[in-house]
Amino acid sequence: MGTKFTYALILTIASAVFQLLLYFTGFQTEKLAVGQHLNWLGLIIMIVVLFLGIKAVREEAPDKSLTYGKGVGTGVLISLFSGLMSAVYSFIHFKFVNTEFADYQLELIRAKWEEAGMGAAQMEQAEGFTRAMMGPVAQAIMTPIMAVVLGTIISLIAAAILKRPAPAPTV
């Protein structure tokens, strides 16, 4: 379990540092419109760490083999562990660090609603729901779910690339 947890911890720390960089550079606040596009970099971080984690598990095997199922399982476990740890950080980040995230997000969304022709009453109703979904608790709940979903997709691909059959027994 050590290697999987190690890579989950690496992914969690890398994600937290990335969130802090976005915040301190203003891409989670004033420049949120641009910052939303930078979130794809977080996906790249996840791809790299999962790939390296699955590869490390393969290299730990005595015969350096990796079945497809073990590769997928490894990636999903790394994602799950990281998602759970990241949920804690996500709550702390949006509760104590970036407390105005919902306000900045609503600024962007409100403009889109106006373009779509929503009325004031509709926008007010939608704002309540949107604000709840952008809150620290909702973000903490969604974090592990998204981590496992994305991690599973990435793991399916990475395991296909990294699988290696066990060497044939010598007689």
Rank of each mutant, 00 (worst) to 15 (best):
L156V: 09
A126R: 11
V17Q: 02
L66D: 03
M123L: 11
L20V: 05
T12G: 08
F27E: 08
V76E: 04
L162C: 05
W40T: 00
G75T: 07
A147V: 01
F101A: 09
Q28K: 12
V72K: 12
P165I: 02
E124M: 03
A147D: 03
F129D: 05
A159P: 05
I44F: 12
T143K: 04
P165W: 02
A8C: 09
E115R: 13
N98E: 08
A33Q: 14
I54F: 03
T130C: 14
Y89K: 05
F94W: 08
I157L: 07
M133W: 12
G75M: 10
A87R: 15
T6W: 14
Y68F: 05
S65Y: 01
A102N: 11
M46L: 10
M146G: 15
Y68G: 10
I141W: 11
A8E: 04
Q125C: 08
P62T: 06
G35S: 02
A168F: 00
E60L: 04
T143L: 00
L11P: 15
F129K: 00
K64H: 15
A147R: 01
N98W: 06
M46E: 09
I92E: 10
A102K: 09
G117A: 00
S90Q: 14
V57M: 08
G128A: 02
A166Q: 02
Q105G: 10
T74D: 01
S65G: 04
D103C: 13
I157H: 08
M46V: 09
E59R: 13
L38C: 06
A121S: 15
F96T: 07
E127P: 13
H37I: 04
K112Y: 11
F101T: 07
G117Q: 12
P165Q: 11
Y104S: 08
A120I: 09
A61M: 06
T143Q: 00
S90W: 13
H37S: 13
P165S: 14
T3G: 05
E115A: 11
Q122R: 07
P165V: 00
S90R: 13
Y89P: 14
A140I: 12
S15H: 09
I141N: 11
A159M: 01
Y68V: 03
Y104F: 06
G119D: 11
S90I: 12
S90C: 14
V57R: 14
S82V: 02
Y23R: 04
A138E: 07
G135S: 01
Y89I: 12
A132S: 05
P144E: 03
P165H: 14
V88G: 11
P167I: 06
G117W: 09
L41I: 14
V137N: 04
V34R: 05
D63R: 06
Q125S: 15
L80S: 06
Y89L: 15
R164M: 03
Q36F: 13
S86E: 09
S65Q: 04
I92W: 12
A126T: 13
R110D: 10
V72E: 11
Y89M: 15
K112S: 10
